[in-house]
Every structure is written in C-alpha cells, then in structure tokens.
Amino acid sequence: MKRTELVVSSLIVVALMICKFLLPKPLLFSPLVSTIVTILIGCAFLVIFILTVKGKPIERRIVFLVVGIALVFPFFMKVELPIRISPEVQQVYDKMSSLPAGSKVLAAFDYDPPSAPELQPMADAFMKYAFEHDFKVIMMGLWPQGPQQANQSVEAAWAYNPQWMPDSADEKVYGVDYVNLGFQSGNEFVILRMGESFKSMFPADLYYTAYDSVPLLKNIHNFSNIDWGVNFSAGKPGTVEWVQIAVDRHNLPMSAGNTAVQAPMAYPYLNAGQLIGLMGGMAGAAEFEKLTGHTGKAITFLLSQTYAHVAVILFILIGNVAFFLNKKEKK
C-alpha cells in the first residue's frame, strides 16, 4: 500500500469514528446548511466542468465520490418533495381498496435483500394496509430469501401497530389472518402447478405445519379461490412468469411491484390490461406509501435519489460537452 493510500484510509476511519461517537444523533441539517451543501455540490460540478473543458478530465473515483455525496447528504436534509401519483400506482391502490374485509390475497415475494431498498417499502406498506383492512394474506416466494422478506414486512406491520403482535388485543393470528408458505424451487413450474393445487407445491408452510392443518388454507385449493394477487419482483422468476401463467391462464387479478430495472419489461403487460397497476422502483414505492398513508423509507429515499439522478445527468452532459469539444479540436 502506498503512503498516500494509507493516509487516506486512516482519514476515512477517523471520519467514520467521529460520525459514530461524536456527532449528535440523529443528525439533521437546518435549511441553511442544506442550502449550503447543495450549493457546494453545484460548485463541485462547476469545477469539474471547467476542468473538463480545459482538457483535464477528472478521475473516475471523483465521479463515484460525488455521486456518493449526492446520495448521502440528502439523508440529513429535511426537505419534502412533492409526490405526483402516477396512473399505474393509482390502479394498484384502487384495486386494493375495492377489496372487502376478509378477501384472500396472495402475495408473492420474489426478491432478496439486495433489492429490498426498492421493494421492501412497497411490501411494508402493503402489509400494513392488508392488516388494517382485515385481508387474509397468503405469502410465498419463488426466491429462496423471499419468505424472510415476507416476514420482515409482517414485523414492519407489528412495529407500526403493536396491537397486531402475538398476545395483543387486536392480534393478527398466524394461520388465521396470514400464513407464510415459504419458498419453493421450480420457477414458473411452481406457478403452473399452483394453478391446479397449492397443496401440491406447498405440502407444508414455512414452519412445517401441514397444509390442511392451517385454518386459513382450508378452502384454498388454487387461484380460483384467491381474490387478488400482488407480486413483488426483482427479476426471474417474477412478474413476467406470474402474468404468463397465473393471469393469462388462470385469470388471477394481479398487480405488481417491480425493481426499476425490471419495470420496463412489465409495462407492456400493464398497457395490455394483463396487470392491474404497477409500482416501479423507488418512485413507485414512494407513491404507494403516500396513497396508503404509511410513510416509510421510500419517501425518505426519494430526495437522495433525486440528487443522485441530477448528478448523473450533469455528468452525462459534461461528458458529452467534453466529447464534442475533443472532436472539434481534432478537426
């Protein structure tokens, strides 16, 4: 390791320790400090632009650092962004709010922790709404870590209203109000078999209770016994497979929440009426949180994402200016 690298690493460690032990918690910038930080980030871009125009392109690490700063500093700013509800998220909410109490809802958690920042806020808001309106929720996952994400959303609902916890006054009883069927391998073939029989794919729930012994599952044999399905998906198997089999073959009314990467693949299904609404990425999650009234991480993260997007757009513009200037000079 070079001497400068050692110095930089030590400085980072010292900075982190100051953050950990000396700074006030939680840290919140005043409006003045927030404005100054924003202006400083803007100034950094101006300097980068001038250097690029002068033919001194910056190092890629500077790009990472600036994007990182643009992501982190908004955590400490108290700025409320206006959130406009898109028609596709409104459709999800309209469908969900049209369901009467006691409706059987199938929630497929097809994602793992890396995609949780985008999908968990949607799942949390859904679960709080479902418990609030007495839906009977059947959770499952086509991804190995999906059922754990499902349990996290139940815990988020408990944190929101401790009365729903076990042994509380308004307890949501496992096996009666909600059940976690766990993970099943086989991708789209699992959905295909569920069309005939849920039990054939899930002989027991996540905790090895036999399918027939779970009261909530007594009269649920296949998709025809489900009132609405919602899929939180980060890839394959996910929304595409659910639409192709559960929706198009078995007429399950279904909505979806997707990571932003996957959302463009799901939009054709939305426009064709195969999906009832779509929540795409962090923006979709924030809109859903706003509609359900359960403010969570997505709304908090939206400011950071906006700053980061502006940073990326500015870098693209600077890169293009440099490209055309270079071309001109070569001529």
């Binding site: 992501l71 890396p114 920042p117 990425g281 993260f301 950071s304 994402q305 997007h309």
Partner: peptide, 25 residues
C-alpha cells in the same frame, strides 16, 4: 430505470451504514 435501480441498491447500503451502524439517521 437501471440507473434508478442501481442508486437504490447503493441507498440501501448507505442507509444501513449511516442509520443502523452510525446511528445518524
């Protein structure tokens, strides 16, 4: 959309570092 998604991944980690670990959020 891909940029948005990648930023979200990073956000999740930063949220953990500055929230759960450092306790600043």
């Amino acid at each position: 959309y891909t940029v948005m998604s990648r930023m979200s991944l990073m956000l999740g980690r930063f949220d953990f570092l500055f929230g759960e670990w450092l306790g600043l959020i």
